[in-house]
Every structure is written in C-alpha cells, then in structure tokens.
Write a protein that binds this DNA or RNA. Structure first.
Length: 864
RNA sequence: GCCGGGAUGGCGGAACUGGUCAGACGCGCCCGACUUAAAAUCGGGUGGCCCGUCAGGGUCGUGCGGGUUCGAGUCCCGCUCCCGGCACCA
C-alpha cells in the first residue's frame, strides 16, 4: 500500500464491514441461522439478527455508566501523612501535548496505562490515574500565527477534542484532577517553584552561546537540534550569544548517574541517560604560562601520558585567548581564526576533514618535566567541555596526532605495550590493554598505565599542580525561550536593584494578551509595554519584567506532583499528599523523552527534595518505555503528518478492538507495525467471544464447577494473565492466553459443566483490555459492575495435575511420551521409560551409561 | 569509535529460571460446510526435505562459526547484519 498522504486517514470508511449503520447493504437478505452452527448450539434462540456484536451502543452505554458512577474517581486519604502506602499505586502516562487529535502512539501509551490501572484497581490497589495537558509550547503559537486566533483558544479547543477522544477510548481517568500547563492556577506554581530554585542558587542567568533558529526566531535547546537543523521547522540553526536563564542540572550530575541503579527502567533508557550525562574520570592538571602569570587547568583522562605532552591547545572561545592575541606576533591571523571559529556551527567544526589552528607565539610549562611547549589555538578543542584547554599528547591521542602531523609538531611516545618497550608505534597508540607500561617518563617509567595515573596525579598534587577530577558531558539546562506561549519567568529588572524576583503574593505573573506573536528578534512579550513596565517590588522605582518564557520542559518537570493535589490554592501541593502518592509507581511513555524530560524531572525532584518540599529523590520508580507504532515503513508522529487517529478506527471497529489490537500486535516495548488485517483478526476474536459467551449465558449449566479439563484451562489462564499483567508486563501474551481459553471453551461446548465458569473467567480477564464488551457480557452472565469486581484467583489445587506427560529421551532425542502419575519415584519413572517399546527400539541393547530425571518433565537415557 | 537493544515459519510474534517432539496466539494462504453466488460465519490443514498407499516414521531447522552440557532459541567464545543513543567530550 502506498503511504498515506499528509493528514489523511488511510482507512476508508467503507472498510467498515460489520457496522449496520455504515455498512448497510440493500441486497443483504434476512439473516438465517447457519444450520451448522445451530446444530452446535452457538446461537441464542430468538434472533441472531438482533444479537450481532455492535460496539457503538455498547461503548456509549458503559461510558455513560462509568461517568454516572464516578467509577474512576479517587480520593486522597484523609490523613495522608499517616496513611498506609502499601496498597497505593500511582499509574501515570506522559503528559500529552494537545495537538489537534490523538495518534496511534498516544493510543498505545494510554492503553498500556489503562490496562495496568484497571488491573491494579481490581487487584485491590488504591489507584491514582490522572490526566491533563502539556499545553504550553511552540506548535500552538505557530498555529496562531498561521491561522489567526489566540494560542489559548487553539489549545483549549484541542484539549476539548482530545478529552472526548480519550473518553471514547474508554480510558479510566479521574478527570477531577485534570491539570494543564497553561492555566494560571498551574503556572502560578511553576513560577513559585522557579523562585524557590532561584533562591537556592539553582537557577541563574549567564551569557552563553545558544542555538538560535532564524525561522522560529527563538532559542532552541541543544537536544532540539538535529543535524544542525531545528527539530520543528528544519531551518539551519546558528549560534548567538545571549543572556540566558539556566538551571544548575550539573550540580546533580553524579547523583543523576548513580541513582539510575535504584530505579526500575529498561536498560536502553538508562544507557541513553548515562551517555547523556557522560561522566569521565581523570585529572585536572595546571600548566603555567609565565608571560601571563597564569596557571591554566586542563582536564585529561590520561594523566599517565603527561610526559608526552608536546604542545598545548586552547579553544578559540577560551578567556585567555584575548590576552594572548595582544602580545602575539601572529595577532592578525589569530584574530581572524577566532572570528571564523565563532560563526562556525559545532557540527561544521566536528565535520572538518583536517584540523586547523594557529600558533600563539607563547609557551606553557609542562608541570612534569618543566618543558616549555607551544600554545596553539584550535577549534578542535571545545570550550564547553572540560576546561576549554588541553595538553596535547600526539603519541596517544588520535586527534592530537592528526594535529601534530598537520603542523609538524613533535611526537613523543610515553606508553608502550609491556615487553615491547623499545618498539616504536605508528600513529596514536591508544590501546587499552592491561599491559601498558610507561616509557620516557622519568621516575614513572616502567609503571603500568593505571599505576602511573595515580602516581603522577599524587606527585603533582603534593606540589599543588594537579588533582583527580571528574568531567561531565551534561550541561546546565538553558530554559529561556524567546516566545510568547509559555510560562512567564517571574523576574523584574530594576536599574537600581538589578534582578528582582516577583514576590510570592504577586503570583501568578499572568501572560498578557497581545496582538502579534510574530517574533522579530526579540521576545513577543517585549511589545506588551503596559505589562513590561512595572514598579520594582523592592524600591518602587521603574523596572521592566522579564519578557522571556520558560521551556515547556519546566512545566512537565513537576506536573505529576500537582495531580496529587490539583486544587490547592495555598501551595503547589501539600507535601504529605505528594509523599503519599509518589514516587510514581508506573510511568509509561515513549523513548523520545529518554533524555530531556526524564533528566529534567529527575533534576527537579532532587532539587525539591533538597529544599524540603518533597520527601523522595526519584520521581519515577518504574518506567515502561513503549516502542513506536509504525504505519508501513513510516514512523507515526505529528511532525510527519501521516498520523492515523483513533476516531475513525473507533467508528470502524470500536474502541475495544482498537485497544486490544494495539497491544496484540507485539511486545509493547518494541516497535510495531499497524496493519488493517490485524485489527480485523482481533475483531473476529471479540465477535467470537460475544457469541460464545452469550450462548453460555443462556444455556450453560449452573451449579458447582467440577474439576475438569476446561476448568483447569480456566485456572491456568487466570494464572498466566495475572502474571503477564502483574509481573511481566507482557500485554500481547495475556491476550493470547484468553484466546486459548476461548478456543478451549468452544471445543468443549457450552454444555460442558465448566462452560459458564470458563466464560465468566474469559470475560473477567479480558476486561482491562476490552472494558465495554466485557461489562456488557458480564451483565448477560447475570452479574454487575465488573470494573470493581475482585480479580479472579487461580485455584492452586486445580493447577495441580494427577498425571503428567512424561517425555522419554534417548541421548537427548525424544523417543516416546505418555501420561504417568505425578507420584512416581525417579526409579519408577526410569523403569517405565525403559519399558517403552519405542524406547527399547532405540536402546537396541546398548549399555545405559546414565539416566537423567527431571521431575515432572522427562527422563533422558544416555547410552554409549 | 564507545554504549545499549535485537535477528525464530509467507507475516506479527510465543517458548518466563538450560528440560514436554521449537513455532502458542493471531494474520495470510489452502481445503471443506453453508450460499444461486459472494461476503460473513463455522470446521479442518499449514516449517523444509525424505520414506510410506494409508497409519505412521526419518531427518534437518531459531543470523553465521565454534564450545560447554545427558540436553542449548535460551549459557560461553569469535563473527555478520539491523535498530537506537553518544561522539574532535581530551
């Protein structure tokens, strides 16, 4: 099938082949009972026509019932500080951005959360499962610019639509707790929390080069840049220096890394965070520049190669470069080089085929051997990693080696493979074997590399020229955005008092209505003169408000706390309530937030914990990261414009089918492909369930359930589904298990003494996935309110079998299998096994060397 | 380059701690029932090769090559390819 065009659903409505409403066929004859089926007794007497499974009325009916019953509302405990937390569970999916409609990625995430929440409710947990919207951010503002209207109107219209879609999906949400980022009741507290972080020194302002999108006229975060282009609009990003607000995420770098050990997240997500944080151990060493009377620190992971440092390199942005230019014989060339490096993008610098640099004319003193080595400025050294200066060891670093070759700088080997100390090494010798030994390194020669690292740092430390150091790739989080549709930063700038926080009692600093959101190189809010000009809260003099707004990742760094106490107007939340529900027991969301959102939220919680506002240090105890839902070979996402929405699928197949299928495609943590054949198949399953259970409701025997094959299958299914949902989070296999049970029921027939029990079990177990049809069938079976019935329990005694199928192997190959009593001893099992004629045929008189007995499974006879 | 994940029928996948002939469940396909016909529905079949008229039996088979073990899709060693993250990060 050709990929769908932009914005078009690829499922035509006429594929709806079973909904009477859409699929009316004038030639369809009056429906007859299929005689074969009637013989088997599958149909309730009195009219198959009226009893076809039709999802629409069923789903609408039960959604109404749940709403009237406030079925998914959950109260906070009356005394959360002393409440028993042992049966609470907080199930949360990532805060959705309210774009026009939901797509299948949303359907997957929220169905996973829904199944878990519904399952946990029925297993006796006190379940918090809220919903709201991450409603600030660029798309709404761009839509307002494009189509007119206010971003608020656009966002609120979208929210209303999505809320309706979510209800139609049958997701069990406590809507009383709905919270959205753009509501003043919410962002008031975002501002309040910002002020707390500011007071604690965790939010600060500094001039920094930032990525700037000339199209969106805004700062974009490093992680929103892909291949040098703006992730949203695709324009090429340039570098600009601006005064920016930052959160001091690096203050928690070590802890953000270390605490990954304590949380139950998939390895791939943890690994992404580890890469992102990028910790490396090494040393900071001081090189002296005599002419400037400066000691310049460098960071290195290879202090053992210090004797091989033959030159010294500063990043073009290094603060000392200015002073070096002044006295340099190469001043003009240097100035030119630094100027060109400044406008280059980082990607260009990295992609450069050959390394470039300019000699400054100055020398630095190697603290190990007092050698004076030339100081170069080169753009392969980055200002924002380490100290922006390096000692170059061309013999043992590929980049330094390339540079030394280019400019014919000396290369001195100081590490060699043990036993080959005299052999010269081509290129940069960077082998990380256990057997590296130092050479040409004074008293350290002969030591292994690891020994020498410690010894050299200790030796320099004694003389005040070095110390162990750890460097991180993680940067502080720049959260200033020069856009309108975001949370205003509650700061004013006073000529006399400088940066002044807005007093708490004046919050929220409301986002004013303005006429023109179009950025013109300055933030749109700057044009709201009445709003910008204020009295300084401190001195009463003239002052101006901060016109930048916050990155939306600030909003989403604490929303899960507000859900716990959403209507609090005295504080963002009460700590005992938040401490009762948190940390989130089960978070669900896509890998696309593996680094940004999940790092920022973790940072926020650590900071809030240090401020005494919350009593925990990790926000999300367990994380389920779902895979992508793909349509053909194309990823489904709103940016690609090929989103396939749930609305038309619900029309065609019903919400229960959509819910079941999205989880049946494959393991939910792996990428999956949506196919229409697949959802047809799952629809067949629902119709089969409908027909067989309806029949069982009418004609299956009542009374005690005997222990027979069907009842045992039912109990086995209970055990499997419970384990799949509770421990394994294996959603697709649980559906398979219920299908097997239904097949067994169909085979046994509805007259089987255990048929009613099997039918009830199937309906009960499928309820988290297909709550509407399950509720309807539950009613037919003569019960009510399945959503609050206790989850079935497998009867252990029913799971015990009196016999089992003994597998007999000869030399590891299966030669026979037969039923035997479970009570037989090993000797008896071996006797029965060897007695088998089929086994005898393979033994063929050979000598039995050994027998292996696996209890309740097999006997393996080993012959020569 | 470093780190993480993965490879099983025509397809999506199952096999959870090494142990019941690997392939559950579903899709697709084939055959049959019902039908004037089709759809829907229902029943049956469906890894390859070989032997056999049938019944049945043999043999190979979980990306590739080795190994451990009575027994390997599962564990170990060495590869190939695919997906993702990080990357002039010193």
């Amino acid at each position: 099938m050709a990929p769908p065009g932009p914005g078009r659903c690829y499922i035509p409505y006429q594929w709806n082949t079973f909904s009477r409403r859409a699929g009316r066929c004038p030639r369809r004859p009056p429906r007859q009972l299929p005689t074969a089926s009637r013989k088997r007794g599958f149909f309730v007497s009195g009219g198959v026509m009226d009893d076809r499974y039709d999802p629409k009325p069923i789903e609408e009916r039960w959604q109404r019932v749940w709403e009237d019953a406030r079925a998914f509302h959950v109260d906070n405990p009356p005394d959360p500080a002393h409440a028993d937390r042992s049966r609470k569970t907080y199930v949360l999916e990532m805060w959705p951005y309210p774009s026009g409609t939901l797509h299948m990625g949303h359907v997957l995430v929220y169905t996973i959360g829904d199944v878990l929440a519904r399952f946990r409710r029925r297993t006796g947990w006190h379940v918090l499962r809220p919903m709201g919207f991450d409603s600030f951010g660029l798309p709404a503002e761009n839509a307002a610019i494009r189509e007119g209207g206010h971003p608020r109107q656009i966002v609120e219209r979208n929210i209303a639509h999505i809320r309706r879609e979510m209800t139609r999906m049958g997701w069990a949400i406590d809507w009383d707790r709905e919270v959205s980022a753009h509501e003043p009741d919410y962002y008031r507290w975002t501002q309040w929390l910002f002020l707390k972080l500011y007071e604690a020194g965790l939010a600060y302002r500094k001039s920094a080069p930032v990525k700037w999108c000339p199209n969106d006229q805004t700062v974009v975060a490093n992680e929103q840049v892909k291949d040098g282009r703006c992730e949203r609009c695709g324009a090429e990003v340039i570098s600009r220096n601006l005064e920016q607000w930052f959160f001091r995420t690096t203050a928690y770098a070590d802890e953000l890394l270390g605490d990954l050990r304590e949380i139950d997240w998939q390895d791939r997500i943890k690994s992404m965070q580890r890469n992102w944080i990028g910790r490396s151990e090494g040393a900071e060493l001081l090189f002296r520049i005599e002419e400037l009377d400066e000691d310049v620190p460098v960071f290195t992971t290879r202090p053992d190669t210090l004797f091989g440092a033959t030159f010294f390199v500063l990043a073009p942005e290094h603060p000392l470069v200015e002073r070096l230019i002044e006295g340099s014989p190469n001043a003009d060339e240097l100035r030119d080089y630094v100027g060109r490096a400044a406008v280059k993008r980082g990607e260009e610098r990295a992609a450069a085929e050959e390394k470039t640099g300019v000699f400054t004319g100055y020398f630095a003193t190697n603290p190990a051997n007092e050698n004076r080595i030339p100081i170069w400025v080169a753009d392969y050294v980055l200002m924002d990693y380490g100290t922006g200066a390096i000692m170059a060891v061309p013999a043992h670093d590929e980049r330094d080696h390339a540079f030394a070759e280019e400019y014919e700088l000396p290369i001195v080997q100081v590490v060699a493979p043990a036993g080959a100390e005299d052999a010269s090494v081509e290129g940069a010798y960077v082998a990380h074997s256990e057997n590296e030994v130092l050479v040409n390194s004074a008293q350290f020669s002969g030591m292994t590399s690891p020994e020498a690292k410690r010894a050299i740092v200790d030796w320099l430390g004694d003389r005040g020229r070095g110390r162990p150091a750890i460097s991180f790739r993680l940067r502080d989080w720049g959260f200033s955005r020069q856009r309108y549709w975001g949370c205003p930063i509650p700061i004013v700038y006073c000529d006399r008092d400088g940066i002044v926080p807005v007093p708490e009692d004046q919050l929220p600093v409301e986002l004013p209505d303005i006429d023109d959101y179009l950025p013109k190189g300055k933030a749109p809010l700057a044009s709201a003169e009445d709003w910008v000009n204020v009295e300084c809260p401190r001195c009463g003099g003239p002052a101006r408000r901060e016109v930048e707004t916050m990155d939306t990742f600030v909003d989403s760094s604490w929303y899960f706390l507000r859900f716990c106490d959403p209507h609090n107007d005295r504080a963002p939340f009460d700590r005992p309530i938040v401490d009762y529900w948190n940390p989130v027991d089960q978070y669900v969301g896509g890998v696309d937030h593996a680094t940004m959102h999940l790092i920022y939220a973790r940072f926020f919680i650590k900071a809030l914990n240090d401020l005494g506002l919350v009593g925990f240090r990790e926000p999300f105890a367990a994380l389920f990261s779902n895979g992508w839902v793909q349509l053909g070979a194309t990823k489904m996402s709103k940016s690609k414009g090929n989103a396939l929405g749930p609305d038309e699928l619900i029309e065609a197949y019903g919400a229960d089918a959509v819910r079941l299928y999205i989880l049946f495609i494959g393991p939910a943590d792996q990428d999956m492909e949506w196919t229409e054949g697949g959802i047809e198949g799952i629809t067949r399953f629902i119709r089969r369930l409908w027909r067989i259970v309806s029949e069982a409701a009418g004609s299956s025997p009542r009374g005690d359930v005997p222990a027979n094959e069907l009842s045992r299958k039912a109990h086995e299914t209970i055990a499997r589904v419970t384990d799949d949902l509770g421990r394994r989070q294996s959603f697709n296999t649980a559906i398979s298990a219920v299908m097997e049970l239904l097949n067994a029921l169909a085979r046994a027939g509805v007259q089987d003494p255990a048929a009613r029990f099997a039918a009830e079990t199937a309906v009960s177990l499928i309820q988290p996935y297909a709550p509407h049809v399950a509720e309807e069938l539950w009613e037919r079976l003569g019960h009510e309110r399945l959503w609050e019935q206790p989850w079935p329990e497998a009867d252990e005694t029913q799971l015990q079998r009196e016999t089992f199928e003994l597998v007999v192997q000869v030399n590891g190959k299966v030669r026979d299998r037969f039923e035997v009593d479970v009570g037989l001893s090993e000797e008896e099992l071996v006797a029965r096994a060897t007695a088998s004629p089929k086994v005898q045929a393979h033994l063929n008189g050979a000598t039995i060397r050994k027998t292996v007995v696996v209890p309740r499974k097999l006997v393996n006879i080993v012959v020569n």
